[in-house]
């Protein structure tokens, strides 16, 4: 298993290299600080250009620039920002990553717990009112764009609820750390937004997995052996349905860690997503963009690998040789 994991990791390296190179080439050829400087500061002398070349190796061809960026990234040096006053990217990145984790880790845990509970409930009470409600929720959750759900929450808590009650229990934007209460009230809505979409997808999957397992022959065998219904659900059914579900959870975790872009934008959250979109994409800051893109890529690869390993660990039929 360890050998398999290592082989998979080694196999993932070319994937990461190629995809980051493609992205690097793309963003570097689109964003040219020299041209921008020429436009924004016609009177600047050659020392300004030399300085830019010095900082970003702009006089070198893109593959070479990529290699030196990569060399830095491997050692934790993510280069210097163009848009944020020539600051080092790495400390900014880690600072923002912490803020993102504040949303994504709790969201992922909530998704895992709730999707497990909802799918068990829904599958055991198939065609009951509760099951219809769960199914309806999964459809709605999957159909609603994240940003729209975020806006709905803002409208509801920021306007309607306040108009009715005069209270505003949650912050509808920004990270507020003045007190624990502020912190909790500022993470509440963004986390809810993050949870909804993944929860809908995972519950839908989990319900199908449970239903299919519920009708399996080995469940009938357990019943014929005289195993109590409760044990059948909690031991036999859950153990078998867990195999596909755990892999989906691992992927959800990866997606949430890597992808809070939209939610952070809606809630003005100072995390990686906002860093990528506003400082990276909108300000044409290559090193900022690449830092976040690399992070998303690595997280995705790692959690996909984790999903496979968990699968093999839970299902004795799968043996990685």
């Amino acid at each position: 298993m360890v050998a398999y994991a290592l082989r998979r990791l080694l196999g993932a390296i070319p994937v990461i290299l190629v995809s980051t190179f493609v992205m690097y080439a793309l963003v570097s050829s689109i964003n040219d600080p020299i041209a921008e400087l020429r436009q924004s500061c016609p009177q600047c002398d050659s020392s300004a250009y030399d300085r830019l070349n010095d900082l970003y190796n702009l006089d070198q061809p893109i593959p070479q620039r990529y290699l030196s960026w990569l060399g830095g990234a491997v050692t934790g040096d993510l280069g210097v920002s163009t848009s944020m006053g020539e600051q080092e990217v790495a400390p900014i990145f880690w600072d923002r990553a912490k803020n993102s984790a504040l949303l994504s880790i709790p969201a992922a845990l909530i998704v895992i717990v709730f999707s497990a509970v909802l799918s068990i409930y829904s599958a055991l009470r198939q065609y009951s009112l509760g099951d219809y409600a769960v199914t309806g929720f999964t459809y709605l959750g999957l159909a609603m764009p994240t940003f729209f759900f975020g806006l709905l929450l803002q409208v509801f808590w920021g306007i309607w609820f306040q108009n009715w009650t005069g209270l505003k229990p949650f912050w509808t934007g920004g990270l507020h750390t003045e007190s624990i209460g502020d912190l909790l009230s500022s993470v509440a809505l963004p986390i809810t937004t993050l949870v909804i979409i993944s929860l809908a997808a995972d519950t839908r999957f989990g319900r199908a997995a449970m239903l299919e397992t519920r009708n399996a022959d080995f469940i009938r065998t357990a019943r014929a052996k005289g195993v109590p219904e409760r044990t059948i659900v909690l031991k036999h059914l859950l153990r078998a349905a867990l195999i596909p579900m755990v892999t989906v959870w691992a992927i959800t975790f990866g997606t949430l860690l890597g992808g809070t872009l939209v939610t952070e934008t809606v809630f003005s959250w100072p995390g990686l997503g906002r860093l990528l979109i506003f400082n990276g994409v909108f300000d044409g800051d290559v090193n900022i963009m690449m830092a976040v893109i690399l992070f998303i890529g690595v997280i995705t690869v790692l959690f996909n690998l984790l999903a496979d390993l968990l699968y093999g660990w839970l299902d004795p039929r799968v043996r990685y040789g």
């Binding site: 992205m23 689109i30 990528l276 994409v281 998303i296």
Partner: peptide
């Protein structure tokens, strides 16, 4: 399969944004 794996690691929205800006 390699192509598929590469696409998996790239965030579609990020690439669309990069292109959309320019």
């Amino acid at each position: 399969t390699f192509l598929i794996n590469c696409l998996l690691t790239i965030n579609s929205l990020a690439i669309l944004l990069v292109l959309g800006v320019k």
